[in-house]
Design a protein around this nucleic acid. Structure first.
Lengths: 207, 207
DNA sequence: GTCTATACGACGATAGAC
DNA sequence: GTCTATCGTCGTATAGAC
């Protein structure tokens, strides 16, 4: 699961190392389940099949592990969104595709998504700043689509910025409530219904 | 701020005690800011002007403090919602009022709201169960309004349950991003725009 | 009901052998 | 690069004086 994400960002050299991949997976499991401060380095190490000291060969600190995870997660999400936006023929198509794709990502990668969205505050100030830059790129993709739809007359929106935030809120909250096996809900069904809901939020003319 | 919430639930006898109120406020500040496990009992105690030991006269444990805060917060939110729903003349009015009110609550009480929504998993299993009962009552208010609107023909909705979840997602996410002083956004403006957005989500016939 | 003092385990991180 | 052993600190919670 996580390897899908990491393989999309081969720029991180550490990803060639299977121990690092296991540490990423262990940390993603643990942070998503118990939160950053609820997770111990011993917990992560044992899930990855290492001694407590083994973590520090690959990461400078627990916070560094959270940061790398957040960064990789944001990059993967941003790239998936930008690709979806580029393929669309109109703002209406673009919004539906982008929100569908992002909703699917929040469900399929719900552990990473949860960390990305809810453990942000436990990053150091410098790391928060770096992640925030990536996050603004994601927000900008959605805002731009809505602005284009308003300009073309396809959308009817009061305030572009706050409507973009609302569409993203729908999607982000998936990471809070979704878990695999939840009743009659799959990443696929979420993707379908959330694309349509986003079109309603912007008052798209055709349904 | 918090005293507004607590005064709505005089059934909790401890609220007559100003030290307990100070502890609630200190814990709400700290938990909202740094999360449950990121907050120390020393931190809470000093914010409330007590020694570390002083907390345990009033609360059995740090988890107990989180539980009482979650419970009071849920009860306040549920009562505010139910009141808003009762005053409405139609499903359209009811949905707009309820979502407006709940969005306003998430902004005004964003610290308690954040704790209620994001620190839930750190409660003990028994306490999770108790809080979950209250949460289902909140969900049921929204679901019932949407079902009534579908029945009356005012709303056009695919799936009542998932649409209710989406409307609540919009609102819940306010607790993640809102903080006082955020650019051109007030609890009042959030309440207004979110009521309208919820009507769009359900395909309400009149805007 | 609040304090000072403290028990005692768990924490993140490091040292040094292999 | 991984281990065992451990350092120094801080965590929750309690004991007992006032």
């Amino acid at each position: 699961m996580l390897s899908t994400v990491t393989s999309q960002t081969p720029s991180l050299p550490a990803h060639d190392n299977p121990t690092v991949v296991r540490l990423f997976e262990a940390a993603a499991d643990a942070f998503a389940d118990k939160g950053f401060h609820g997770t111990t380095t011993r917990d992560i190490a044992s899930r990855a099949g290492l001694s407590p000291a083994g973590v520090y060969v690959h990461f400078a600190s627990k916070e560094d592990l959270l940061f790398q995870l957040s960064r990789v997660g944001h990059v993967a999400a941003r790239d998936a969104l930008a690709a979806a936006a580029d393929e669309a023929a109109s703002p209406t198509d673009a919004l539906q595709e982008v929100i569908s794709e992002f909703a699917r990502w929040h469900a399929e990668q719900h552990q990473v998504a949860r960390i990305v969205q809810y453990e942000f505050r436990h990053l150091s100030p410098e790391h928060q700043r770096e992640v925030l830059t990536l996050r603004r790129e994601i927000d900008a993709v959605v805002e731009r689509i809505i602005a284009e739809g308003v300009a073309s007359g396809e959308f009817d929106v009061d305030d572009t910025r706050s409507t973009a935030l609302a569409a993203l809120s729908l999607v982000v909250d998936v990471a809070r409530w979704y878990h695999p096996g939840i009743k009659r809900t799959t990443p696929e069904s979420i993707a379908n219904s959330y694309g349509a809901l986003a079109l309603r939020l912007v008052g798209a003319r055709r349904d």
